[in-house]
C-alpha cells in the first residue's frame, strides 16, 4: 500500500500565492477528486506533484521519499503518471507507435545496441509490443491501433494519452479534466475504465474535474481548493453540503 503525501505545499509566482499550505494524502486504491473554482490552484498542485513546478514551501512525498526536488522525468519514473487536459501526442504516428513511446523506461537497451539492432533490442521491442497490445485491448482501441493520431477522434486521443500512463508501471495517476470534450458514452466508458484500473492495478487516482455529477459519482473523497487554500477534504456527500464549499462556488457564479 503506497501513500502519496502533499505536505504544507505553497507556491507563489512573484507575490501571487497560487497555493498556500495545502496538505492531504492519497493512498493506493483511492480515487480523490480535486475541485474548486477556476484559478483555485488545481493544475498548479498537479504540476507540483509531477515535478513540473517546484513548491516554494512544503513538499510532496511518496512513501516518505521526497519527490518535489526531483525533475519531472524522475518523478514519472517513480510511478507517478500524469495525463494532461489536452493530449500531446505525435500526430503523424499511429496509436500503437504513440503507446510504444511510453514503454521507454521498460526498454532497457542502450544506444549502441539500438544502432546495431542487437538481439536484445528485438526481444525487448517484442515484449513492449505485447504490453502495448494489452493496453490497447484494455482501452478498447485494438481496432484503431494502426490509425494515425491525426485521423483519430478527440475522445480516442484522450484514451491514448491515458494508455501511455498505464504503460509506465505507475502507482498513482493524476488526471487533469479527463472528460472535457468527451461525449456521454465516452464519459461512461472512461468512468468504467478508471474503476477497472483502480481495481486491477490498485492505482491511487487524483482527478481534477469541473463536472460535479461525474466527480461525485466516481470519487471516494473530494479535496476542495479555493484561492490556493484547501477548504474541505472528505466524502463527496459531506463536502458538497459544506457551507464554505457552497459559498466558494456560489461566489464564482454570482
Amino acid at each position: 500500500m503506497a501513500r502519496l503525501a502533499v505536505e504544507n505545499v505553497s507556491v507563489s509566482f512573484g507575490g501571487i500565492h497560487a497555493l498556500r499550505d495545502v496538505s492531504f494524502d492519497l493512498e493506493s486504491g483511492a480515487i480523490v477528486g480535486l475541485i474548486g473554482p477556476n484559478g483555485a490552484g488545481k493544475s498548479t498542485l498537479l504540476n507540483c506533484i509531477s515535478g513540473i513546478t517546484r513548491p516554494t514551501g512544503g513538499r510532496v512525498r511518496l512513501d516518505g521519499v521526497v519527490l518535489s526536488t526531483l525533475p519531472p522525468a524522475t518523478v514519472a519514473g517513480r510511478g507517478i503518471g500524469r495525463v494532461f487536459q489536452h493530449p500531446e501526442l505525435v500526430v503523424e504516428l499511429s496509436v500503437r507507435e504513440n503507446l510504444m513511446i511510453a514503454c521507454h523506461r521498460s526498454l532497457g537497451y542502450g544506444l549502441i545496441s539500438e544502432l546495431l539492432k542487437l538481439p536484445n533490442v528485438w526481444a525487448a521491442e517484442r515484449a513492449a509490443a505485447r504490453r502495448v497490445d494489452e493496453v490497447l485491448d484494455r482501452l478498447g482501441l485494438s481496432e484503431s491501433a494502426d490509425l494515425t493520431i491525426r485521423n483519430l477522434p478527440y475522445g480516442h486521443r484522450k484514451l491514448v494519452d491515458l494508455g501511455r500512463a498505464l504503460l509506465m508501471d505507475i502507482r498513482f495517476l493524476l488526471l487533469d479534466e479527463p472528460i472535457a470534450g468527451l461525449n456521454e458514452s465516452e464519459v461512461a466508458k472512461l468512468r468504467d475504465l478508471l474503476l477497472r484500473v483502480r481495481r486491477e492495478l490498485g492505482l491511487g487516482i487524483l482527478v481534477v474535474e469541473h463536472n460535479m455529477p461525474f466527480v461525485s459519482g466516481l470519487c471516494d473523497r473530494l479535496v476542495v481548493l479555493d484561492l490556493g487554500h484547501l477548504i474541505a477534504n472528505g466524502p463527496p456527500a459531506k463536502v458538497l453540503r459544506d457551507p464554505k464549499v457552497m459559498a466558494s462556488y456560489l461566489g464564482e457564479d454570482a
Binding site: 513540473i52 522525468a73 519514473g77 495525463v83 494532461f84 500531446e88 509506465m168
Partner: peptide, 20 residues
C-alpha cells in the same frame, strides 16, 4: 521515439519518464 516526443512537447516527454 524519445526524440519525437521531445520535439512534440518536453512536458509530455517528462511525464513519460523521458528526460528531454
Amino acid at each position: 521515439r524519445a526524440l519525437l516526443i521531445v520535439k512534440e512537447s518536453e512536458i509530455a516527454a517528462g511525464a513519460l519518464g523521458i528526460p528531454a
